[in-house]
Design a protein around this nucleic acid. Structure first.
Length: 611
RNA sequence: GCCACCGUAGCUCAGUAGGUAGAGCGGCUGAUUCGUAAUCAGCAGGUCGGGGGUUCGAAACCCUCCGGUGGCUCCA
């Protein structure tokens, strides 16, 4: 259904001739209504009573906003090219009329007639609005989200505070996050700064040749992304998960998948294979659940953990929501599922994964001050596990946002997220863990218990870092915060695409510079040499603009004294250190971290400029 | 999905009573061989996002599509 609202000084219409066979009988050939809200409505194919109900809510909502007492329902076919049959349209229009009659003075223009009309629009900002309601692919969960009963509190030092009574002094980012969550931000903002960096640092870029929200990654971005992926995967495997790989597209008609789709508030990409319709996965859940369903699992195998790094997960986010790396339609998500026998075990895993997520983010240079914690649960879960929730709050030693759901509508009873609040005061979720009480049954995943009987496990969904692209986004936004504080923006050493740049003072030092560079390369440190014929000032400047952590200048002095002159970005100063000691220092910094080779030429004169 | 703004050289942008394009950076060439955030000079480089229309004439005005951004809505 589509509705066009016009808040009018008056509308006047006159019935002319029949437009369709099924035209409605009418009582007034001419009508004029003063000071009213006119709703021009197209009833579309697939619209039903639910859509009518939703339409009533929308009309009431708008009427309240513009303070209208009189309503005009005006059938108007021209808003849509996918109309319902006339009988349905009449029925739904009548339902809407009846639904509004109690509270408003409702007038309705007859259906199925050509009418002349004159309307006077008030012209204030809310006087013209249009809405689209329903749509066949809209999952229940998306619609339900707007009606589900929920309330919010701040949890701090074991106490729950009303949002309005909590003093956010010193917790401004939490305040921004809360207002973003509950009311949506009102701040006037520009493009988030990470978009500028993702391009200028040659990490990622928009790709016109694809759908919006599908980005291209340049060599440096690909390197950063791979390192990030490897780090998370290593963590998860150390944690005890087994890595699997599953298809990226699934059958719309598969019964378990079909009902799961309805519980998941996201839109899908659809793929046609001949006549058959498939959707692109929006997480690794399906693939892993379908594996678990067929596996022979006993209580001795629990907790069982499956993991996949999805490249990609797809969500067809609305156009207006896509920005840079914050929100994409194709993204890389580490996704682990843990199967446990009961709620006690689930809580134990939940807490461990909570801590795992903190460790993972820390390696990306994001600590608890950089993100806000949200914990959400059903009221039932809270009643039975109040202390558990409070312990989570105590563990992070700062106030957190908690959300209560009166009923369980989604598939989980408890979840947390770590939300990054960026320079435009918008929030994006990074790590998350959920306790899923529904899907074992839905997918018929069972394990054999001590007595030889089949039982449904509980399932934890965990993305310890959140989407990899989002982690990069958070690192870039954090860099901007650093810049605002007067610090130099920089990546953690292990993930810097170039870790050491060697700058020969003049051409005659080049050979020696390359030789010194080899010592770093042997240790798995990504080093390059600026062999271009430009001034060294300029080389230093460009190295700084690329956020390279260590800039080593090689001239006569360094060659004769065998001491390196290092410009250290983390300390923001230049220091002198013997080569051996410096390499030891860097080796220590990358210990236990993923290592990858430089993903571009060692010599800057050979480099391509991508942006 | 709706509304608004934007799209000009590889990048950032200038170019409004409509008269077939400019700067800086980058690139190339030459000079300079240089000590920690921009050496100097010359040269090359443009279907003005795509398509359609108005006009003698469109980067400019209109329509439409695509892309980007912001707002609304929404965001497990």
């Amino acid at each position: 259904m589509r509705i066009l609202f016009i808040h009018s000084d008056f509308i006047e219409y006159r019935v002319k001739e029949k437009a369709v066979e099924a035209a409605e009988k009418f009582t007034k050939e001419w009508e004029r209504v003063e000071d009213c809200l006119v709703s021009f409505i197209s009833v579309e194919r697939k619209d039903d009573e639910n859509v009518a109900r939703k339409a009533i809510d929308e009309i009431v909502d708008v009427a309240e906003k513009v303070n209208a007492k009189r309503l005009v329902i005006y059938p108007y076919a021209h808003l849509s090219s996918d109309l319902s049959d006339p009988e349905t349209a009449k029925k739904i229009l009548t339902l809407i009329e009846l639904g509004l009659k109690d509270k408003y003075d409702v007038h309705r223009a007859p259906f199925g007639w050509y009418k002349s009309f004159t309307i006077s629009c008030k012209g204030h900002p809310l006087s013209e609005l249009s809405k689209q309601i329903g749509g066949e692919e809209e999952p229940e969960a998306l619609k339900k989200e707007t009606t589900i009963k929920t309330y919010w509190k701040i949890l701090y030092e074991g106490n729950l505070f009303d949002i309005d009574n909590f003093d956010f002094t010193g917790y401004e980012k939490l305040r921004d996050f809360v207002s973003y969550e509950i009311s949506g931000t009102r701040a006037v903002v520009d493009v988030p700064p990470h978009v500028k960096y993702m391009r200028s640092l040659e990490i990622a870029d928009y790709e016109e040749g694809s759908d919006s929200g599908n980005l291209r990654y340049y060599p440096r971005g690909k390197l950063i992304k791979s390192l990030a992926e490897n780090l998370v995967t290593n963590y998860v495997i150390d944690y005890g998960a087994m890595e699997v790989e599953t298809p990226i597209m699934y059958d719309y008609e598969h019964p378990a998948l079909k009902s799961y789709l309805q519980r998941f508030p996201a839109r899908q990409y659809t793929v046609l294979s001949g006549e058959d319709r498939y959707f692109l996965r929006f997480s690794a859940c399906f693939g892993q659940f379908l594996i678990a369903k067929d596996a022979l699992i006993t209580y001795k195998n629990l907790p069982l953990r499956l993991y996949e790094l999805t490249r990609y997960s797809f969500r067809r986010e609305k156009h207006g929501e896509l920005v840079g790396l914050r929100r994409l339609r194709a993204f890389t998500m580490p996704d682990m599922h843990t199967f446990v026998p009961d709620i006690e075990k689930a809580k134990e895993e939940f807490l461990r994964q909570f801590k795992l997520s903190i460790s993972v983010l820390k390696d990306f240079g994001l600590d608890l001050n950089d993100y806000e914690v949200a914990v959400r649960f059903t009221s039932d879960f809270y009643r039975e596990n109040e202390n558990f929730i409070k312990d989570l709050g105590s563990f992070v030693k700062k106030p957190i946002l908690v959300q209560f759901w009166e009923e369980k509508f989604f598939y989980f009873v408890l979840k947390f997220e770590f939300n990054f609040v960026d320079n435009t005061k918008k929030a994006a979720a990074l790590s998350t863990v959920q306790i899923d009480v529904d899907n074992a049954k839905r997918f018929n995943i069972t394990y054999i218990n001590e007595n030889g009987n089949r039982e449904y496990p509980l399932i934890l969904h965990c993305s310890p870092s959140g989407a990899i692209e989002r982690v990069i986004y958070a690192m870039l936004e954090k860099a901007e915060f650093m810049k605002k504080e007067g610090k130099k923006p920089v990546f953690p050493f292990w993930i810097s695409p170039i870790q050491v740049r060697i700058i020969p003072v003049s051409e005659k030092h080049l050979e020696k510079a390359i030789e010194i560079g080899k010592n770093f390369e042997k240790e798995g440190i990504r080093v390059d040499v600026d062999d271009r014929e430009i001034t060294m000032q300029k080389k230093v400047r460009e190295a700084e603009m690329e956020w390279i952590p260590y800039i080593v200048v090689i001239g006569d002095k360094e060659i004769s004294q065998k001491i390196l002159n290092v410009r250290d970005r983390y300390l923001d100063k230049t220091r002198e250190i013997p080569l051996i000691d410096f390499i030891d220092e860097l080796r220590e910094k990358i210990r236990g971290k993923p290592v990858k080779r430089l993903n571009e030429d060692y010599l800057l004169s050979k480099r391509v400029k991508f942006v």
